[in-house]
Simulated assay, not measured.
Amino acid sequence: MQVFRVYNHKSKGYQAVPVGFSVSAFLASFLWAAANSLWGKAFVLFFGFLMMIGGAIAGAMLNMPLVMLSSLAGISLLPLWAGVQGQQWICDRFERQGYSLVKRISAESATHAINAAKRSVKKPEASHSKEPVNKPAATFGRDFRDVRDNAAPNSNQPPPQDFNARPWKRR
């Protein structure tokens, strides 16, 4: 089973992104980035490949083996960088487009992850009974449940660890 990050947008619906190494980004780096509308990353990868190939050719023509070997190492590291960071780039793009992370789920496929995330989201139940609805009494100031549950909008409590999508990035 694979771990997926499931995102939801109010109008565009659900999207699931697998967590981990992206083989397709490793094999087709800048083409994969362009196909996924990651234009800045595609430009950096394409320009990096051109510079590294130019450095390897210049190192071979000028009989400078260190320049040639370092350029060949750069050519091999660019796809590795794309493979390691590819899924995170997609997650960042979704967050910039207004998607919100719903859940991290282990599932067999993206559709199974989306279906599991839809089932886990609680829907408000419509009560058809004739019982009066008890409205909460007016409260002034901060409710202690907000502090305990970290639900207050200006709370200084850190988010729960399982919900943190990017633990290695500083904000």
Rank of each mutant, 00 (worst) to 15 (best):
F46I: 11
S11I: 14
A113C: 05
V23G: 02
P167S: 12
H112P: 00
V44N: 03
K122N: 07
R145S: 15
A34L: 07
A113Y: 00
F49I: 08
V121S: 06
F163A: 13
R166T: 15
Y99S: 02
R5K: 15
L50Y: 08
A137P: 02
S100K: 09
K12G: 04
R5E: 01
N63T: 10
R93Q: 14
A33R: 01
K103Y: 05
A82L: 02
N154V: 10
K135N: 15
G54Y: 10
D143S: 13
I114M: 03
I75G: 02
L69K: 09
G48H: 03
A56G: 05
M51T: 14
K118S: 09
V147G: 05
Y7C: 01
P79W: 06
P160V: 09
N36W: 03
V67T: 07
A126Y: 14
S100N: 12
M68V: 06
V147F: 06
D143G: 08
R119D: 10
Q85R: 10
S70L: 10
Q87P: 01
Y14D: 07
N36Q: 12
K169Y: 09
E108R: 12
A116I: 11
E108Y: 07
F47V: 15
N36A: 06
F26S: 00
S29T: 07
H112F: 03
K123G: 09
F21W: 08
I114P: 00
S106Y: 04
S11Q: 10
N8D: 08
P159Y: 09
G54F: 05
N156Y: 09
F43T: 15
P65I: 12
